[in-house]
Simulated scan of single mutants.
Amino acid sequence: MKPLEDLRARLDVLDRKLLEIVAERQALGAEIDAVKRATGQSTRDFGREREVLLRARVDARDLGVAPALAETLLRSLIRGSLTTQEQARVAAQGAGTGRSALVIGGRGKMGRWMADFLASQGFRLTIADPAGAVPGYEWLADWHESALDHDLIVVATPLRIANELLVALAARRPRGLIFDLGSLKTPLLTGLAALREAGCSVTSVHPMFGPDTELLSGRHVIFVDLGHGGALDQARGLFASTMAELVVMELEEHDRLIAFVLGLSHALNIAFFTALAESGEAVPRLARMS
């Protein structure tokens, strides 16, 4: 019988080889995406994904590997490949090449996501946030210090201060596209209206995902139509090369639907905790089992 350490050393070698194969697969995926872009094909091919997964299950049985394990592994690899391809496609589009963007509140989680997303398109980024600088980007502690001569201004601040900020922006009439990232729009009515009345290029955006999201396939980005078609088209264009579902709706419709989405999740939590409280079960014991 071979010593345990020798067997573990062999596992380490195999793990390294697996990662080398994954890297090779990712590189090949990037080449495939370049061909797709050149021939006008979409990034995702669900039929092809199905073929890969079915073949993986068959091959796994032949090799004595659990088919479910093989499918899980291949799904992860496909997702990684799609993420790489989507990011390459966004970068290749170069929508921000030669253009500048200001992200107010860019130190926050969604602000940082948006800053990185815009930078990947070639935008020259400035972050305005009193919380501090973000490595790799120009920084202002106070957005009022900016000349506001950017091609794009994103308001990614907490909702409680966003409306006042939009009103202040309207007073200075920036020339570039302006949009917020708020999850609710009614609290921003005054600020959005002020920008519209000031003749600014304004719309409103709601990314329906969190800041840890890498792959936008299956995700939704909502664009609120404020009556400025050019602004709406520009904002949508920023996401055109992704696989996200782009949805346009009116402000009132947005908040009504989002109220249902948020309300249902809260209702489920309330129902769960009510049932737990009335069950008489000891929470510490349940926690150990969860």
Rank of each mutant, 00 (worst) to 15 (best):
G229W: 09
A235S: 07
M208Q: 05
D225S: 09
A156M: 09
L264Q: 09
H144V: 04
G230V: 14
G227L: 10
L238I: 01
A240K: 13
L159I: 12
A170I: 08
F223N: 07
D225A: 08
H220E: 15
L177Q: 03
G237R: 00
R160W: 06
D151E: 07
R196P: 04
F209H: 04
M208W: 06
S279C: 04
S279V: 02
A141Q: 03
R256D: 13
I178F: 10
L159N: 06
L251K: 04
E250P: 06
P187V: 04
M249R: 12
L189P: 08
A168Q: 06
I222P: 07
L189V: 14
G227H: 10
F239W: 05
L215I: 06
L246R: 11
A235G: 09
G280D: 02
L189W: 13
A171Q: 06
D180S: 01
S217A: 15
H254A: 08
L177S: 05
L251G: 13
L195G: 00
G230Q: 14
L251E: 11
L216I: 11
H254L: 02
V261S: 15
F273A: 03
V224H: 00
I258H: 15
L251M: 13
F239Y: 10
L268W: 04
S204V: 09
S217G: 15
S241T: 14
K185L: 08
L166H: 09
L226I: 01
A141P: 09
V205A: 07
L169M: 11
H254G: 05
S279P: 03
D233S: 12
S241Q: 15
A171C: 00
I178M: 04
P158E: 08
L184W: 07
A235P: 01
P158D: 05
L169W: 03
T203M: 02
A259N: 07
S201F: 14
A271I: 13
D149Q: 05
F223C: 14
H254S: 07
R160K: 14
R173P: 08
R236Q: 11
E214C: 06
F273L: 13
L268P: 01
V202D: 03
F179K: 00
L264A: 02
I258K: 04
F260I: 13
L195V: 01
N163L: 11
G182R: 00
E253I: 06
E164G: 12
L268E: 14
M208V: 14
I222Q: 04
Q234A: 15
H144S: 09
V202Q: 04
H150R: 08
L165M: 12
E245V: 14
E164N: 14
L257Y: 12
A168I: 02
A193H: 11
Q234D: 11
A162P: 05
H254K: 07
V261G: 13
L264S: 10
A156S: 06
